[in-house]
């Protein structure tokens, strides 16, 4: 019955709102306590209309560059800003492999994903990482909420995306491949790509290219936990 915060292990005491007391809205079983939650910055309306970067209205410089390169018809949504706490979170989740932390944002991610139709394709982690962690972080975050299709195959790269600097990231060549056994997906009106972090947009846009190359003509949207 009682919940404990997945981050700090303190008991979670709900701060009931008036609507919850009146029974109009249900009290959600949160997995993070209020104090930990305050450490994260949830992205509101004031953000880049394309990628969700905070305080960059209407379009951030990154997206402008992408648009110059011809990526005009895609849109990304992220839940939180990649700040110090989010960095620590991913460190514990991905590097130390604390699988239980996948639950921290489930409630919020579920709310965000309500607006998106199936199918969902995720960006897989490399074989090497999967071997190391024994789980795929993106599948951990989203797997319980939506049906994920493993339609991308990640080809081996020398250095992981996370270990590169900005310039190197942007210069990364295509490392994703569409798995043609999922060709049936290509008839859908909209495909949503999910990933854990959106930094420069390179990975997601490689996925975009991949889908287009495979002949998909519908709408492409993407979601991530952090931006």
């Amino acid at each position: 019955m009682r919940n404990y915060c997945v981050l700090c292990q303190e008991a979670i005491v709900p701060q009931l709102t008036m609507l919850q007391i009146l029974g109009i809205s249900k009290v959600q079983n949160s997995s993070m306590c209020c104090r930990c939650r305050q450490e994260f910055y949830f992205i509101g309306d004031k953000c880049c209309q394309v990628c969700g970067k905070m305080d960059m209205q209407p379009i951030c410089s990154d997206c402008e560059k992408w648009q110059q390169q011809g990526y005009n018809d895609y849109k990304h949504q992220a839940l939180c800003v990649y700040n110090e706490s989010m960095h620590d979170y991913f460190k514990r989740y991905k590097r130390y492999g604390d699988f239980s932390l996948r639950k921290a944002f489930q409630m919020d991610l579920r709310k965000m994903l309500v607006d998106y139709p199936e199918p969902f394709i995720f960006i897989p982690s490399s074989q090497e990482h999967l071997q190391q962690r024994q789980f795929d972080p993106t599948v951990g975050l989203f797997g319980d909420l939506i049906n994920l299709t493993p339609a991308f195959i990640k080809m081996p790269t020398k250095v992981a995306q996370a270990q590169k600097n900005r310039q190197q990231r942007l210069a990364t060549p295509q490392f994703l491949q569409f798995d043609h056994q999922y060709n049936a997906l290509l008839t859908a009106k909209q495909i949503t790509i999910v990933d854990d972090i959106y930094t420069t947009g390179r990975t997601i846009l490689h996925a975009y290219d991949c889908l287009r190359a495979a002949g998909f003509t519908g709408v492409i949207r993407s979601c991530s936990l952090a931006r």
Binding site: M1, R2, Y4, Q9, A11, V13, P14, L16, I21
Partner: peptide, 26 residues
Amino acid sequence: MAIRQLQLSKISLLFEAGWLIFLALA
């Protein structure tokens, strides 16, 4: 975590933190 679970007796559930307003209202 496990120790906490053990400490958690049923009596504390009768007066679950965050929900006491319902007792006062009742």
